[in-house]
Design a protein around this nucleic acid. Structure first.
Lengths: 227, 227
DNA sequence: CGATTGACGACTGTCGACAGCTTGGTATCG
DNA sequence: CGATACCAAGCTGTCGACAGTCGTCAATCG
């Protein structure tokens, strides 16, 4: 991946932490099922494969552990997190909790600017649903929901959402398929925006409950089939 | 703390990670204001002082960073987290979000056993309010609220609560004083239990909102005075 | 034949060392 | 005298190495 900057094109500042690079690599490898759930990761082997020492590998693994993508056992090492249906249910229950709260806050200070930004995102999601890859669809969906939380104005809430986002990516990738139909995506998300525009708190809550409920049922069912 | 086992008493297997020990030390040092908010921590100096190498120190620091007690700047090191009033408000807003949800779940499957356990904890808090240190009072209060979340049955929710718990300890220790009056503690927490016993969801929500609101106002006000 | 024990191999936890960066102070120049 | 450039000290990021521990598998004993 190259980038353009003030010094011309292709001049990439290769100064990002090794830790971040390793973390990105590991995240991709886990999300893309390159490692199986429950698989053990060897620090030495990873370090050899990536051409770095064990220190950054270890630090990146701890980072992914805090994000819920890996679990560690003392003196045994790191293992790819294997989410079962119950844990998945808990994650979606927490997500419901967060998004309910965010929309209750957001509806209090909703304005045209926020509405326009959200509408643009939904339109982008519809385009993406037609042409792009599954992972791209998932990312844009998460961007939409992240915008909802961000607009609510609580940065700590946003951080918690980002935390569970990694787990969501994990299990969404796990079930593989996504509802690609752009019509369903549009109606599903516009219902949320309509509820917000109405300014009615109860209507927002119902919309969120329905939205997250559908997503949860879809994923939990997918996990049930997969395992 | 010593433990009894099959070989008699006091025979403790001292094999805890250095990382955990350093993390505990750092946590205590930060909570007890031994380090000032915003202060820079040197890995080398900490390693020297504790008689260990930099690796466990660094790992423990990263752990505390994920818990929100430290923040890191690349190539600059770790700094003690300095919470301002806005961040504090966000933390309490998130806590409100979590406890509301937990009580809504808990009221659905509330039983005598859970009620008894919670009542015992409130009684313990009243005793502690008379005799013990501030930090002990804070701990027992957190235990009570942790029980509420745990009884709700969502482990992911509990993990998130544990996360913000560290930040709560930080700011509670920051303002120093606690409402020591056992009467107010009793009435304040029994109102929650009464709402749970009533089985009415709306009543629970009001009780939680009031409870967390009081705590938030108290702490935010304390921070305002301190800074 | 099944269970226990012992050794082997691999790995994690921890350590000390080096290079590059950041920082604060000092010297130089306008 | 003020501002800029430079320099030294300390620190973080990264590395390779060693010791203790865990899992595995074969050999031994009942």
């Amino acid at each position: 991946m190259t980038a353009s900057n003030a010094f011309g094109s292709g001049m990439v500042i290769q100064q990002r932490n090794l830790v971040e690079q390793v973390a990105d690599f590991l995240t991709q490898a886990i999300i893309s099922q390159h490692y199986a759930p429950g698989e053990r990761l060897s620090e030495v082997q990873l370090a050899r494969d990536l051409g770095v020492s064990r220190a950054p590998v270890r630090e990146a693994a701890r980072l992914l552990e805090s994000r819920g993508l890996l679990v560690s056992q003392p003196r045994r090492g790191f293992f790819v997190r294997a989410l079962d249906a119950a844990e998945l249910n808990d994650v979606f229950d927490l997500r419901l909790c967060l998004e309910r709260h965010a929309l209750a806050r957001l509806v209090e200070n909703y304005d045209a600017e926020k509405e326009q930004a959200l509408r643009r995102q939904v339109e982008l999601m519809c385009e993406v649903a037609l042409n792009d890859s599954d992972s791209r669809k998932i990312e844009e969906d998460l961007v939409f929901h992240r915008m909802l939380i961000a607009f609510a104005g609580n940065r700590r809430l946003l951080r918690t959402f980002d935390d569970i986002t990694h787990e969501l990516r994990l299990c969404m990738a796990l079930i593989g398929k996504t509802h690609a139909d752009p019509d369903s995506i549009a109606t599903c998300h516009w219902a949320l925006l309509d509820a917000l525009a109405s300014g009615d708190r109860e209507q927002c809550r119902e919309a969120v409950d329905y939205h997250i409920g559908v997503a949860r049922d879809y994923v939990v069912q997918g996990i049930g089939e997969a395992s």
